[in-house]
Design a protein around this nucleic acid. Structure first.
Length: 284
DNA sequence: CCGGCCACCTGCGGGC
DNA sequence: TGCCCGCAGGTGGCCG
């Protein structure tokens, strides 16, 4: 579920349901997720309070009220589902927030890698979870290409030999580029994922940044449905099935050149690339 | 200070 | 059927 496009879509949808509404009931069914949920603090922020804003930093969802902010991260398997109070409770529902009209937001997370925490309004940028986060790729005031180029060169001084794929997935450099969109944007930019980040030219970073912004934007516009088991109400597969060019397509033909997509492992995570379009030495 | 690796969990699909 | 293995969208923290 959670790559940046899913989180962004969720935040947009949540604004419609939450803004100006009040949490009447806040329930927890288990609090031992990634870190224990600070139930008392979370209730202080939410219970009986009206939502002033719903924002996002990286893949963190932030719900603002007059008494503070609750941060929610979905981890690998988390969902934040809006439904009627009458709906049967899904397995692994750990928290239920009931709004004034009986609408509920439910936090469901089988693997429990997600987090729920509270912070004060003035803590957002200094909180450990946010302090070292890199730039927002879709922030129009940021030159993503220049940032990536400069950061990749900074690391060069400390004999870094990090690959471009792992560099893109480093949230202290840029947030929101997860395992799917790292592979996808490198394929679009025709850059081999095993190349050293420090060896790419400024020109290549310009091209790569363009692809990152485009692929994330397209996925957001498609409603953030880039997960494996997504089906819409008619049972049709979402963006994931239709539009991902390489992710999860090992041994299938490249959508540009028909060569067979290859799966490799970098930092313990699967990487997909086309050995022809993204040939290792291509300076493109 | 930095890069690399692990841990944290449950579920699912494939092979035997 | 059923068991076992590998794999799954993330990331903070620890170790060397």
């Amino acid at each position: 579920l959670p790559e940046l496009p899913e989180v962004e879509s969720l935040v947009c949808g949540a604004r419609g349901n939450l803004l100006g509404h009040r949490f009447e009931v806040v329930e927890f069914y288990r609090s031992d997720i990634r870190e224990p949920i600070p139930i008392k603090q979370v209730k202080t922020v939410l219970l009986g309070q009206t939502v002033n804003a719903v924002t996002r930093r990286g893949k963190y969802i932030l719900v603002h009220t007059a008494t503070g902010i609750v941060g929610i991260h979905l981890g690998m398997s988390g969902r934040f589902i809006c439904c009627d109070a009458a709906q049967p409770m899904a397995k692994h529902t750990h928290a239920v927030l009931t709004l004034d009209q009986g609408i509920q937001y439910r936090f469901v997370d089988p693997r429990r890698f997600g987090r729920i925490f509270a912070l004060r309004a003035d803590e957002i940028e200094s909180h450990p979870f946010f302090a070292r986060l890199g730039v927002e790729p879709l922030d129009p005031s940021v030159s993503l290409s220049e940032h990536l180029f400069v950061m990749s060169h900074k690391k060069l001084r400390s004999k870094s030999s990090r690959t471009i794929k792992q560099f893109l997935m480093d949230s202290s450099i840029v947030v929101g580029v997860g395992n799917i969109y790292a592979s996808e944007s490198l394929w679009r930019a025709k850059i081999n994922p095993a190349r050293k980040a420090s060896q790419l030219t400024r020109h290549q970073y310009v091209h790569l940044a363009r692809q990152i912004i485009d692929v994330l934007t397209e996925a957001i516009n498609a409603g953030g449905t880039s997960f494996r088991d997504y089906r819409d109400i008619d049972g049709k597969p979402g963006y994931f099935q239709q539009s991902l060019a390489v992710y999860g397509r090992e041994t299938k033909p490249c959508k540009r050149c028909t060569a067979l997509i290859r799966r490799t492992v970098q930092g313990g995570r699967s990487t997909y690339h086309c050995p022809v379009c993204q040939s290792a030495k291509s300076a493109d």
